[in-house]
Structures are given as C-alpha cells and as structure tokens.
Design a protein around this nucleic acid. Structure first.
Lengths: 356, 356
DNA sequence: GCGCGTTCTGACACCGGTGTCCAGATTTGC
DNA sequence: GCAAATCTGGACACCGGTGTCAGAACGCGC
C-alpha cells in the first residue's frame, strides 16, 4: 500500500457536503454564533484572544459568510450598483473597471444597471431596482448624476450614492468633480495658440451638464485670446459618432469653414474627422480637430486625436472608495480619496498650426 | 381651504412604513403564506380562483418578493454572472447589453466579473464568486468559455452556464457557436477575389480558440484560390491595438511586403493600419486591410474598415435566453433561441483591388 | 350517503445570518 | 475588600421567504 498523502483538500473541509456556516465556526471555536458574527463584522467589543481564536477557525475551515443571509438579516446587501445612461461605451467600461479595481476581494460585487432617462418608466425602474436590491451604494456618472428626482429616490431608500459631475455640487461628500471646463479651456488656448482664429465647437446634448461646461470652458479659453465663438461655428450634437459626422458636414459646407474644431467628446471628433475628409480636407493640416475624454478611439485614429484626458477609471476608483470607505480591506491610495479630478490636454497629430 | 386631493400614493400603500411582505399578502388574501409563495413561483397546484385572488392583492399593494429572502431559502439567487477575460472593451459592452436586453424586467440582475486567466488565483477567485453568490447562471464568452477547469467548478456547484465558442462544443445545449472560420474564409476569398496574392495574417493569441479558427478559415479561403499563407506573412499578435501596430511594422519591413492583411480582430487591424501609414503607404490602395468583429472602431476609421460582422449583442441575448429559459416573462424572439451565429463580411473602404 | 383518489392548502421547521437584551466576568474606585 | 462600573459573551427572536408533509376539500362512481 502506497502511503497516499491523505491530507484534506486544502481549502474545503466540507461539513458533510455543505459549506460551513457560522454555527460550525461557533461550535469549533467554542463561542456563540453571535460572537463569531461580531468578529466578522469587526465589532470592537471582542477580546483580542477570542478574536484570534475565531479567526483561526475561520481560515482553517475556509468559512465565508453567506451574503444572502447577511443581507436578509441586516437589510443591506453587498452589491454596488452602477446606474448609467451613457452613449459612450468606453466610458462605461472604464468606469466599471475603476469600481472593480476597488471592490475586488472585498466581498462586494458590481451590479450594472443601464437605463434611459427619457423613458417613461425611468424612475419607476430605478426605484424598483434600488428598493429590491438594498444596494450598499450606487455610482452615478453623468448624466444620471444630474437627475434630481433620482437622487431623491436614493435618499428616500437611504441608499448611499456618489455622483460624478463636471462642476462642484452642493454635497461634496457625495460627489467627484471633474472640472471639465478647465480642460476645454486648455483646448481652446491650444488651438488659439497655434494661430487659429476661426474655431468651431461641436457640443454634446443639453441633457448633459458636461456639454455646457465644456462649451463654457472653451468660450472662456477663446476669450483669453480675444476670440469669440461665431454663431455659425457653434453646433449642437449628441455625443455620438453619427451626430459628429453630421455636425462636421454642416461646418464644412459653410462659406468660410473653420480651420479648427473643438468637439465635446472623442466620438463626435471622430465623426467630424470623417466629414472633414469627405470634404477633401486633411486633418491636422487644413483643419485641426480636438476631442475630449481620451478614449481609446483617440489614439487609434490617424492622425491620432489631440484630446483632453479624463481619467475615467480613476474616477471610478474614487467614487467607489468614497462609497465603501471603511468597509474596504486595504487603505486606498491617497489619490483615490480625493474628490477632484483635473483634465489635461494631450497634443497629438490632429491639431496643427493654422496655415498662413 | 382648497380641496387637496388626498388619495394615497398610487404605488406604495406602505404597511406602517415598511414594504409589504408575503405575510401581508397572505393575510389580505385570506390564504397562507405558502399559497402566496406558490402563486409567485407559478406552481401549477393552485386553483385558478385562488391564484386570481392572490394576484389581485399583490398588484393592489404593490408587493414584490425580497430577492435576499428568496435566495436564502431556496439556495439560489436571481443574479446572472458575466465572467470574462477580454482585451476588447467593445465586446464586453455589447455582450452586457445583449444580456440586459433579455433580463430586463424579469427580476434578474447582471453581475459583472472580469478576471485574468493567467492570474495564479484565477480559479480560486471564480470559485469563491460562484459559490458565494449562488448564481442563477453565468455567461462565458471567449476565452473563459474554453477553460475546462472553470467549467468543472461550475458543474461542481451546479451553476448553470452557457459558453460562447467559435466551434461546436460537446455540450450544444450549453453553448452558442459563432463559426468564426466561415467569416475568415469569406474575408480571404474577398481579398483573393480582388486580385491579391501576397496576403498576410495577423492572428490573435493562442489562448483564444477563435484565433486558431479565424486563421484556419483564412487559410482555407486562400486555398480555394490556390493560394497559401507564406510563413513570413503569418504573424502572431495579442488582439490588442499595440500588438497590431507591432505586427504591422514587422510586415511592412519585409523585403516584399504584403498587399493585403487580414487581422484577427478590428483592434489589431487598426494597429496594422497605423503601421502601414507609418511606412508611407495608403490603406485600401497600396495595402488592403480587413478586420474581424465589426466593432464601432471599424466604422470610425478612415477609410472605414472592411471587416467580418459578429453580432455580439445578439449572442448575449441568445446566451441569456438559453440560460434563463422559462424563467423569463415574455416569449423570446425566434432568432434568440437558436444557438448558432454565422459571421458575415462587410466590405468598406479599407480593401481594394490589387494594383497591377 | 359513503368511500376513495385527486387536487389544494396551511402549519411548521428551516435557510444563515444579525439585533436585543441580559447575565456573568472583569476591572476600577474608594 | 467590596460595591459599582465596564466589558464580554450567549440565548433568543427575527429577517422574508421556501420545502415538507399531513390533512382538508373536492369530484366521482356506486
């Protein structure tokens, strides 16, 4: 008979087939289940010695508390919600990544909940979602972060939230501010500094506060160079590629087309680039184009897009750090505890000097 | 005194502040809570009359069962997991959308769980996730769909799953097949048909079965035109933009560069385009480039990318329909109950005739 | 009207945790 | 050294559902 190393499976000394419960831990540690519960929830009222004893058993038998049972009893879940109405998929992915960076390994999970603000059942839908899931918190990127009715619902259900917004809100402790205007201003000054004087703007939809902010920052940047935004060069679009194409066509058909175009986001900038080329002009040479966001698209275009970098993933980390705070395992890095983000221009091939 | 319409809030006749429970329903309907439970779960053993009575009360007081309590008692949750290790963000977003299309309004929610297969704790991590959340099911896109150890874990915990794969698997009832090879073959024939004879391939990483399939389909397409894949024109990359740039540079530095390049996905194709331009050649004119996926990127490039369309969102719908089946509210459309998808070439500006 | 099989219904335990409250243990104050 | 104050741990009810199983109600043939 070969001496088989008969050690138990390293991770799972199952209790006759089922996973261990808090009762198993209590029995083995010779304490009551309530004491185990205290240890799990880091209650300060447990003697150090007892805590050690319990922790030892917990790791020994590989116990982890059942989130459902915990949720039922304590009326809160370990689910973080991401509610969004975002036309830009890259934004969503980056935001998800940021949140996941933070909650990884902490026992929380991420529930994604896209929605459409203009749908008639929007509030009903979100209300049902929040009420049923008893979320540990929700992250609200634009534009849902600007919906007062939604905020009210969250407050009604005592659901913690963090809003991501382009301007400071009246609840700084519940928000991350991105100062979009600064980035837009920098973009305007960049173009003006290159000698452009006829500079157009393609802005996002009114439903996004950021669209206003970016436009306002842009106008401010122009002003610093004694320029102003010509009415016919001020075009409204929808943050989508197609709307950018159409806006670009309008601009290129003007009697005197602009020599530079600042767009409210990269998607629209890509659309504008397409329209510029349809008109037979060259990007970065005849017409400079600048975007906003620094989505992956920006660097994949040719020439690569000059754009304003918004660290969306970092914003996701900030938001979830703020939301979960002490419930997290490890100390968050300092940058994540801040609530402010400052966008920054990155110059690439799509913007060049105005031609004499 | 103005006559204020003092009707109760339409949706929430709260029970002294708390939301109604199954007990409230039972009391008002004069049946036991178990019977209410039967109605909720559509048990066939309830008299029609009783069911109506209960349903009436339920809508009247706006009752909806608590997912936590349900989960605790029945040992299953109403959470669908999406486990993925995907370098392509657009793929993920589309897949999420597809799943959400199906579960919307059905009481299920989507839990996203990205991971890295090569991480040392990959299996531990997924195991913990699945075990704790008691998922109603998981959707597995490539490449996690090809991980046998992962599948075994899911089986161990009786967690239903649907795999999305590029070739038929031995469990057709648990899989969606995308037949990538067909699309790649079509791409090869397209290029050969345009008169190209020196056609390169930039393939995805070995960890993806789809990378093999696409390459194999491509080779088959060449063969149909009596061509074969030259060794120096057969380059391996990683499904990422940067790896595409590098592969493209290698190809363009050859003594006799290819006149057409078929890439395993659009991201790499975008990278290849960049390398081609760095070499001073024009896309669609000197060098034709074809991608795979039809991600949004493909149509945003200039010239737009000829590519193979993979209906990822539809695949997400198929997968979740298959997973949840009868638990869903409405009959799924016929196309969603199929388990097969056939990719299709879409010709755009990035591919053109070989020059004499 | 009775017996009998079928179809429904409800009492009760239970899922795996948490909150309340009190008793016993320990420390502190004088 | 003893009472009071402060900690610590445990018994027990409870969260809001589901599973089991026994028994009630019903339909039907005789």
């Amino acid at each position: 008979m070969s001496r088989q190393p008969k050690r138990a499976k390293p991770e799972e000394p199952k209790f006759n087939g089922r996973r261990p419960t808090i009762n198993d831990v209590a029995r083995l540690a010779r304490v009551s289940k309530k004491t185990v519960s205290r240890v799990i929830n880091k209650s300060p009222f447990v003697k150090e010695k007892t805590r050690e004893q319990v922790d030892k058993i917990i790791t020994e038998i590989g116990y982890s508390p059942d989130p459902m049972a915990r949720g039922l009893a304590s009326k809160r879940s370990f689910l973080v919600g991401l509610i969004y109405d975002q036309p830009n998929p890259q934004y969503v992915i980056d935001m998800q990544q940021g949140i996941l960076d933070v909650i990884r390994g902490s026992g929380f999970e991420l529930l994604v909940h896209p929605c459409r603000r203009q749908a008639p059942d929007f509030l009903q839908n979100v209300r049902a979602f929040v009420e049923r899931q008893k979320l540990a918190g929700v992250v609200l990127p634009p534009s849902v972060s600007e919906d007062d009715a939604l905020i009210k619902i969250l407050q009604e259900f005592d659901c913690p939230y963090v809003r991501i917004a382009s301007v400071p809100l009246d609840e700084p402790e519940h928000s991350i501010v991105t100062h979009d205007a600064e980035g837009a201003q920098e973009a305007a000054e960049h173009l003006a500094g290159l000698g452009h004087t006829r500079i157009a703007h393609v802005s996002g939809p009114d439903s996004f506060r950021s669209a206003h902010e970016r436009r306002a920052g842009f106008v401010k940047g122009l002003k610093a160079h004694k320029l102003k935004l010509d009415k016919e060069l001020d075009v409204k679009a929808a943050y989508t590629f197609q709307s950018g194409v159409e806006a670009g066509r309008v601009l290129m058909k003007l009697k005197e087309p602009p020599t530079a175009i600042f767009c409210g986001n990269d998607e629209m900038a890509a659309g504008v680039c397409q329209a510029v080329r349809e008109a037979g002009r060259e990007i970065g040479k005849h017409v400079s184009v600048v975007g906003f966001d620094d989505s992956p698209l920006a660097s994949r275009l040719w020439p690569a897009l000059t754009t304003v970098v918004l660290p969306i993933r970092l914003m996701g980390r900030m938001a979830s750090t703020r939301l979960l705070g002490d419930s997290l395992i490890h100390e968050p890095p300092a940058e994540e505890t801040l609530g402010e983000v400052h966008p920054k221009l990155v110059v690439r091939g799509s913007s060049g000097p105005a031609r004499a």
